[in-house]
Amino acid sequence: MSARQAVAKTYKLYLGGAFVRSESGRTDPIGGVNVPRGSRKDVRDAVKAARAAAPGWAKKTAYNRGQVLYRFAEALESRSDRSDEIDEAVDLLVHYAGWTDKLAAVMGGVNPVAAPFLSFSSPEPTGVVAVLAPDSPDVLGLVREIAPALAAGNTVVAVVSRTKPLRPLDLGEVAGVSDIPGGVLNLLSGRLDELLTPLCGHRDVNAIIDATYDDDVAKTVDELAAETVKRVSRPSPHTDSLTRLEPLVELKTAWHPVGS
């Protein structure tokens, strides 16, 4: 019997719930396989998909979002290529699944005011969040940043690890078979110098999580964010959950007249 012919996998971007090649048709050979090299058009398509998915994801009840994130964790748990890093990523997803219905109580509430009003604040999703994932750890580094963004009700466009993009792109397949709605999570691979300007300069992106730990990237991101008025957060791997979640919501405060 002849030796079995191995089936090489075509790695693809995860955009709007679909697995697609880069619109530009380009690839970069990484680790012996061709990885899609995302273009600015891919960025635009991803932001469009994320924006379109944003109202639906934000409107889901916190309880439901938690269930979906938990399901995402379950799907990741069932992968065959488990490791300590993947286990930690699963635990993180479960952790943030638990955060979804606690955000309002922790961040919002009734404000004490010295006037005959009822004043209360509640956190709302900030919208479309761009995530610049670190090069390493490839999966855990990505999950650490997308999980709080999704838990807070945002939709995400993430640029995955540039040096090790294969397993992060596989994470798209995990999301694809979980209950994450199409467009809520979008994963791009490619070169940071090409993707940074169209993504961080896109007016329809509301916040940026920069986890590249790179000073040159930070400078470019800050300039683009200032030009287009968006919030930038730079969590370290050890940043606690609440500090991660805070820049990903907008607090809405309402004043209600109470008679008497």
Binding site: R44, V47, R51, P198, G201, H202, R203, D204, L224, E227, T228
Partner: peptide
């Protein structure tokens, strides 16, 4: 402007 826009502008 060089930057991609958004609908609510």
């Amino acid at each position: 402007g060089g930057h991609y826009g958004r609908a609510e502008d």
